[in-house]
Each structure stands twice: as structure tokens, then as C-alpha cells.
Design a binder for these strands. Structure first.
Lengths: 353, 353
DNA sequence: CTGAAAGCGCTTACAG
DNA sequence: CTGAAAGCGCTTACAG
């Protein structure tokens, strides 16, 4: 969403809303069932014990009338909208797409809907997203890794439940879910080492991205554990997108550093790197082994299929939503984030010679 | 979202909503500005001409109090929620992701929000999505290509504006936006013909998918126009996802049909096909030229980068949203859907020999 | 041009 | 266990 001119309450006059055919309301149900509206409401919400007989007749009336409660009215009266705001870095990333679906699938059976807004990896925009969501009176906010400051999140958590992924944070009303990127980074590097590689290049992610940094730490830790000297020249900067992977390979090659394998901090950069190597007539994995991180859907069908660390995006989405649901009922979420798993495909192999 | 057990109004009792610090309401603004709430409302909505002096003082009061109108209350009172429902085949597809962002970017400056729900390419689920959206009292519905029946859409349009992409449909209150898939199919095939290919295989999409069928028609039309005989054995079934492209290549090769090029009805199948060819030690484009359709973000960085028909997903999203905005103010949308464009990359080349 | 009043469709103390 | 009543925060005829 754009930052510019956002004046929701200043929009130009519109055609009068089409007042559609009479909607059936709770009052109609009450009348037909011969009880008070309060009673219908209580039955609907399971808010109080109601005699079986009334319950039956209300349920009949609801069925007969095809009554569906109006969430807008419920929101105003009850102070809850049954909608959860979800801020993401980008709604159009393969990774987030899966996570969003997980959120949706988990929230739906509980009667909640998700309101997605994308922040474009920009703190100012994401902050505005938070405001929009608050303005919409969402009951909770799920922040899927982004640029929001810890402080902003904590402040938000003071008035509304918050669950955040991609970082470790402790605060009241806030729950954080962190995938172990460090371990993933170790795993990927270790895999290459196990294959006999010693000179392993690393394409890093954005320096201010926590996930990227953890993965890099994992890379170094695995090297160290294997007694392999860390070679600064083998680490090149990247930015989590394809071009940066492509460029990184160019730079690596120009530097005349010798390497037999590359670990890219995410799959998108790995894809770019694969193309870069191909451009230089280097074959994957015959000449260079390549490992990515994330296991986005397309990696499985890359040419060659990419060896990578699986990040269970869909599952993480469900977990985040599930934690939110628990927060909403006042429970302290207790759940296990899955460990990183190496998916060994065809882009990595034993070192030659 | 799952179909199973969805009883929004039957969810279990929750902790009482945290009634946060006093929110500033329109009444506060009215009081501070020394006018009636009605007047504040009118200024907010540009609903009537108000004297400059009152306007000024109200604006000051708003600024001073940091007042933000409550959309929930506006929704209940005014019958409009300023939210637009968007039904998509799948929120996690690279194609839809971009379209959704387009919708978001277009709606935001107008003060509208999007409510995304994904239908999983299943008519029953999508129908339920429609109900959820209606239940949420959205002001309009955008249906991005899906399995919904024309009838369901038309019925919906009777009570609320509807914009639909991926099909041609005429009805009051409904606007349809159709990308020319037929022409795209021609273009792709023509490109291959121009390169000297005569035996061009086609990997089809799902038989009940309108886009897929149009693309196939385009394939045949281009062949015919060039005086090339249509060879049924060169067309193999696919299902718009990667594996189906992979399998299609296997079948093609098993059938011992001769071909020098493949046109896959979408990029995902093209990716699968590329892998399939690679598995059979066939090089793209040296041995076989390959063309896809959609130009999803990853295609640009495939190895080799894929020649394809660009479908402007983001732009289509914006157009759909823009049409919705026009419908909402009672205008008849008039807009131009961009024509298909061939993006020539490295997966296609002149036929050998 | 501008108020007072009713109402949108629910929920929730408050009293039985 | 169950009603009557007030209220959530706005909008919109209805009267000046």
C-alpha cells in the first residue's frame, strides 16, 4: 500500500448504499422463537446457560430464517470484530503466500478472518499498516517477519494481543515464534562439508535482516566446528532476491577466489546464483554445489532441483494463528516450532577429485 | 480455508475484550469544536456543504484529539464497511500474489481495504468464501479467476458490485476484465514458428480452465495460420503445476513424437518441462526451445531464463480494483486491459539445421 | 447551513 | 435461567 494521500474519511461522496432486501436480524429470530433478543445472543455466544427448550426453539428459528449474525454489529456492540490483522513483508512472496494460507486455514474454523496488509519491507509502511489494522479494530495482530521495531510491537501488545515471527521477543500479551535460522545455516553448511567441500562460498542476505544474520552465523559456526578456516573473501553480499544472487556469483568469480560450493542465504538468491553459474558455463552440481534456504515451492522444480533448508511456511502460519487464538482466550501459547530440515536434492554432490 | 466445522457464532467463550483506554469519538470532536455530531460527520464524509468557520474548528479538533473514525461504527450506521472482498484461486500462487498487491495498492488511497479469501480452486469452497465475505458485509467483491459459476457471480451482483477477471460476463452491477489468452497463445506459438520450428508440442492446462482453453485455441490458430498441420499427438495434458509439466515431457518422449519446441500453457508447467528435458539430457534451448505463459517472477531467473507471455498480474489487480471503485460510485467502468506481450528470453532459439 | 433524534444490529451489565 | 434497557460510535432522514 502506498504511503501517500491516505484519507479514508475524506473520500468523495458515493452513491447511496443499496439497501438490499430485508436482512433477517437477531430480533426476528427472537420474535419467532418467542424469547428475548438477549437470550438469542447468549445462545449464539454460549455466554450463559440457557434452558434446553428455549435453545431448541431458537435454533429452529435460526435455521428457518437462515439467520447469520452481522459481524459489524457484533464488533460495535461487543468490542470484538473477529478479525485478525496480519502484517507481512510482501503479500506476493512465495514464502509469505504459504504462511498466509496457514493463517487463514487455522483462523477460519474458529470463526475469525484474517486481514492481510503488506508492508513492503519498509518500517514506515509497516507502521502505517499497524495503524490501519488498529483502525479496523482487529482483535489481534500477527506480524510475519518484517521491519517493525521491537518497540512498536511491544507498544502494540499493550492494548491488543500480538504474535510475531522471525524474532525473539518477550512482553506481556505478545508471543514470538522463531524458526531456528542459525541451526538451518549450520545444517546447510555441514551438508556441504560432509560432501567434501572445504572452500564454500556464502551469499549473505540483507545485513539488517535477522534471519539473514542468523543463517550467516550458522555458516561460520559449521565451518569452525569442522576446523575449516573462515575465508572472508568467500562471503559476498546479497539482498535476498534473485539478481543479487546472480551478481554475487559474478563478483565471486571476478575475485578469482577458488570455491567448489555455494551456500546462498535464501532460495531466491540461489536461483540467481544458479543462473549466474550457468552464464559462466559452470555446471551445478558437477562444477559447483549449490545449497539454498527456505525451500520455496519453485525450488523443487528448479533445474536442477535445489538442495535447501526447508522452512515450513504454511505450518508456521498455522502456528502463529494458533498462538493468536490462544492469546485471545487468555492462555499462554505453548507450541513447538519445527526444526530446520535439510532437503537434499540435486544441486549438491560430492566434491570432485 | 477449510470447509469443515465452521460455526463462527458458536465459538467458545472468550476472555472479555480488553477495553482499552478511552478512545476519542466523534462526539468528543463535536464537543471540542462546539458543533453537533451531525456536522462533524458531514465534514468527515463531505456529505454536505458546511460553513468554513465550523469546518476549520472541526478540523482543528480532529487534529488536536488525533481522532480516527471507527470503521465498524461507520459500517453499522452507514451500511458501508469500506472493505472489498477478494476471492482468489489461491493466495499463495506467484501470480495471484502480485494481483493481490495491485488490488491493495489501488484500494488503499481510496480508503478501502481488501479482505482476501482463497478458494483453493474448488467451487464449493469458493462459494463459501462468497458467503463469508457477504457475512462480513463487504461493499463489493472482486473474483480473481476461479471456479465460481457465472450464475453465482450474477446472483451476487444483484445485491453488491462485482468485478470478475478471467472471463467475459455481462450483467448489471458486474464488470468483467478479460486478459486475451487466445492472443497470447497465438503469440507464443507464432514466436516459435518464426524461429523455424514446425513440430511444436503443446502442454495443455486443466480442461475446465477457461484460460487454459483459450491458450490452446491460440496455439492451434497460429499453427493453422502458418499452414502447419495440427498434430494431435503433440498435445499432451497438463494441470498448470510443475509436476504435470515434468510428466508431460516424459509422455511426449515416450510417444517418440518428434518435436523441436514446446509451448507450455503456463510457466509452472514450463518449469517442470525444463526439468524433464534436463532429466533426459536434452538441453534448452539447444535441443528444444521452450516457451511458457504468465511470466511469473521466477521465470526471469530460471536456468535458462524463460521466454514467455507476460501477464501483467499486478496491473490487472489494480485495474480490477479500479473498476470496483468506479462501480461503487455508480459509474460504468471503462478501462483497457493490456494486450499480451511476448517476453523473449533464453529458452527459445532458432531451430537447428 | 445545522441540530435533535432515531436507528444500524448486536452485547452486556443490571435486575429479577 | 431470562428480560428490559442502555449503549457501542457513527449516519441520516427530518425539521428548521
Amino acid at each position: 500500500m502506498d504511503m501517500k494521500n491516505s484519507t479514508p474519511h475524506r473520500s468523495r461522496a458515493m452513491a447511496p448504499p443499496k439497501r438490499t432486501a430485508k436482512v433477517v436480524t437477531l430480533d426476528h429470530v427472537a420474535e419467532l422463537a418467542g424469547v428475548s433478543p438477549s437470550t438469542v445472543s447468549r445462545i449464539l455466544n454460549g455466554t450463559a446457560v440457557v434452558s434446553e427448550s428455549k435453545k431448541k426453539s431458537v435454533e429452529n428459528a435460526i435455521a428457518k430464517l437462515g439467520f447469520v449474525p452481522n459481524p459489524v454489529a457484533r464488533g460495535l456492540a461487543g468490542g470484538r470484530t473477529f478479525s485478525i490483522g496480519v502484517v507481512t513483508g510482501a503479500i506476493d512472496s512465495p514464502f509469505y503466500g504459504a504462511a498466509l494460507r496457514g493463517v487463514e486455514d487455522e483462523l477460519d474454523p474458529a470463526g475469525y478472518n484474517a486481514l492481510f496488509v503488506s508492508g513492503h519491507w519498509n518500517e514506515a509502511v509497516e507502521t502505517r499498516c499497524l495503524e490501519i489494522l488498529r483502525g479496523r479494530r482487529v482483535d489481534g495482530i500477527i506480524a510475519l517477519t518484517g521491519r517493525l521495531s521491537d518497540q512498536a510491537l511491544k507498544t502494540c501488545a499493550k492494548s491488543i494481543p500480538v504474535v510475531v515471527t522471525g524474532r525473539l521477543l518477550k512482553a506481556a500479551g505478545l508471543f514470538s515464534l522463531n524458526f531456528n535460522n542459525f541451526e538451518g545455516g549450520c545444517l546447510a553448511t555441514q551438508h556441504l562439508i560432509d560432501l567434501g567441500h572445504q572452500r564454500i562460498a556464502f551469499i549473505a542476505g540483507p545485513p539488517d535482516h535477522p534471519d539473514a544474520n542468523e543463517r550467516q552465523r550458522g555458516y561460520r559456526a559449521a565451518l569452525e566446528a569442522a576446523g575449516i578456516n573462515y575465508e572472508p573473501g568467500l562471503t559476498v553480499a546479497g539482498a535476498f532476491h534473485e539478481v543479487s544472487g546472480l551478481l554475487a556469483v559474478d563478483r565471486l568469480l571476478e575475485s578469482r577466489q577458488r570455491f567448489t560450493a555455494i551456500f546462498a542465504a535464501n532460495d531466491q538468491m540461489a536461483a540467481g546464483a544458479a543462473l549466474g553459474l550457468h552464464r559462466h558455463s559452470l555446471r551445478v552440481p558437477e562444477d559447483v554445489s549449490l545449497v539454498g534456504f527456505d525451500d520455496v515451492p519453485t525450488s523443487q522444480y528448479a533445474t536442477p532441483p535445489l538442495t535447501t533448508i526447508h522452512q515450513p511456511a504454511y505450518h508456521l502460519g498455522r502456528l502463529a494463528a494458533s498462538a493468536m487464538l490462544q492469546l485471545l482466550v487468555g492462555d499462554k501459547p505453548t507450541l513447538q516450532v519445527p526444526s530446520p530440515v535439510l532437503i537434499c536434492r540435486e544441486s549438491s554432490r560430492l566434491r570432485n577429485g
